[in-house]
Simulated scan of single mutants.
Amino acid sequence: MSRPQDAKRPFFPFGNPFRMISPKGDKITPQLLSVLHDFEAALEERLKKLIPKSKDEILSLSWMTLAMQVLCESHNHIKTLITELELPVNDWDEKWIDVYLDISVKLLDVCVAFSSELSRLNQGHLLLQCALHNLGSSSSEQYIRACSSLDGWKQHIGSGNPRIEKCGSILDDLLGSLDLPKVKKSAKGKVLMQAMYGVKVQTVFVCSVFAVAFSGSTKKLSVLDVADVYSWASTFKGLQNLVNEEIRVRFSSGGFTVLNELEAVNSSVKELNPIIQGVVDTVETESLVRIVRELGRAAEKLSQGLDLLTKEVDSFFQVVLTGRDALLSNLRPGATVIDSIVGSNRDAQIVN
Rank of each mutant, 00 (worst) to 15 (best):
M20R: 10
P88N: 06
M64K: 04
Q5R: 13
L32A: 02
E246P: 01
P181G: 05
F11I: 06
P274Q: 01
G254K: 07
A326V: 01
L108N: 07
C72H: 04
L174E: 02
G189L: 09
V289M: 10
F39S: 05
K79H: 13
S329W: 09
L221P: 06
L302W: 06
L178H: 02
E57F: 08
Y230M: 07
V320K: 03
I51W: 02
V280D: 02
S177T: 06
A348E: 15
F236M: 01
D172F: 03
S215V: 00
G136I: 05
G238K: 03
L308T: 11
V243D: 03
G160C: 12
M68D: 01
S140K: 15
S208Q: 01
L118Q: 04
E246T: 09
V283R: 07
M20D: 12
D314G: 12
H75R: 02
A211W: 06
E45L: 14
V319S: 07
H156Y: 12
S74V: 05
V89P: 02
L59R: 07
N273F: 10
E261D: 05
G334M: 08
C72R: 05
S231N: 05
G255S: 13
N241F: 03
L327Y: 11
A195R: 01
D38V: 03
P181D: 02
S231D: 05
K301R: 14
M68I: 02
S215M: 05
G198H: 02
D109C: 04
F210R: 04
D109L: 08
L87R: 11
T80Q: 12
G305M: 05
S268E: 13
I157W: 10
G323W: 04
D26K: 14
L81D: 06
Q277H: 09
V206N: 06
V351S: 10
G176T: 03
G124T: 05
L262E: 14
I164W: 02
V289A: 15
S148K: 14
G296L: 05
L101D: 10
P181M: 03
H75C: 12
Q69N: 08
L108R: 11
T282D: 04
V269S: 08
V99M: 15
I21S: 11
G168C: 10
L306Q: 11
H37R: 15
L132W: 09
M193V: 00
V280M: 07
I51P: 04
L239G: 07
Y230P: 01
G25I: 02
G343F: 11
K48N: 15
G198T: 00
G136K: 08
G255E: 07
S62F: 01
V280T: 07
A335S: 15
Q31P: 00
